[in-house]
């Protein structure tokens, strides 16, 4: 129950924050502020999405965009690794969250079988992606990139802790590494629960590690989509 409430709230909060940010960017410069009026407009804007979601064309365009982005960022065969990762991840997240939220028993039956199979592919593709992309998000690359973005005055994000606008590359790095660490924990907890070395309390521990890291993974994926993929 705690997981359901926390995960739903966090997902709603993060996505609202991200979409509100995008909505605000669409407004003329002087109107870019947090106000009741803007919030009402935002709600209307979001509600308008339902029509576009129902259109096949929207999905088609989104897919085109994703493929284009993937080809740009993952040249050659590596694009296929990205597709595998994305496809597995969509199923893993949907099946995992759906059963965690709406089915008391949790994931079971054929969806579980597929979840496990997709999990293996996800772990492999994530490892490859890590090999390919980790370098881009290492401190020595992030630092200069951040400096460059600051110089160009590229839209960043407001960090309340430091009370200043930070370059977007930082968010990208956070999203990437959270996604990787969560993926690592997901794979580790899956492996741990399958090995004959851990007793019942350990199994329970792995279960909790798995579902909370899955939440972290989904949150980081949402962030990554916003800051890395969608322009």
């Amino acid at each position: 129950m705690l997981f359901t409430v926390v995960s739903i709230l966090l997902l709603i909060a993060l996505n609202m924050r991200l979409t509100f940010g995008r909505f605000v960017l669409k407004l003329p410069e002087p109107e870019r502020k947090i106000s009741a009026e803007n919030f009402k407009k935002y709600i209307r804007w979001i509600a308008g999405w339902k029509f576009s979601f129902l259109k096949l064309k929207t999905w088609d365009r989104a897919l085109d965009y994703l493929i284009k982005w993937a080809r740009k960022n993952y040249p050659g065969w590596t694009a296929w690794v990205f597709y595998a990762l994305a496809l597995c991840y969509v199923y893993l997240a949907l099946s995992g969250m759906f059963f965690a939220w709406f089915v008391k028993r949790g994931l079971y039956g054929f969806p579980l079988l597929l979840h496990v199979a997709a999990g293996a592919l996800f772990a492999i593709s994530l490892t490859i992606i890590l090999f390919l992309k980790a370098r881009d998000f290492l401190p020595e690359k992030v630092g200069p990139e951040a400096a460059a973005q600051e110089k160009l005055g590229k839209a960043g994000f407001w960090c309340p802790l430091l009370k200043k606008n930070l370059p977007r590359i930082y968010l990208e790095a956070v999203a990437f590494w959270v996604f990787v660490v969560a993926g690592f924990l997901l794979a580790f907890s899956t492996l741990g629960s399958m090995l004959p070395y851990f007793n019942y309390p350990a199994q329970i521990f792995f279960f909790h590690v798995h579902r909370w890291s899955a939440l972290a993974s989904v949150l980081s994926a949402c962030l990554a989509i916003d800051v890395m993929i969608v322009e």
Binding site: A117, L126, L138, F184
Partner: peptide, 29 residues
Amino acid sequence: TFLVRPAFKLVLAGCVLLMGIILVAVVLK
């Protein structure tokens, strides 16, 4: 699936090991 499970575990263990090494290296860095 239990027929292929040993291989599955091996692959998963390999992934976990590689990811773990990279993550440790990044953390150290």
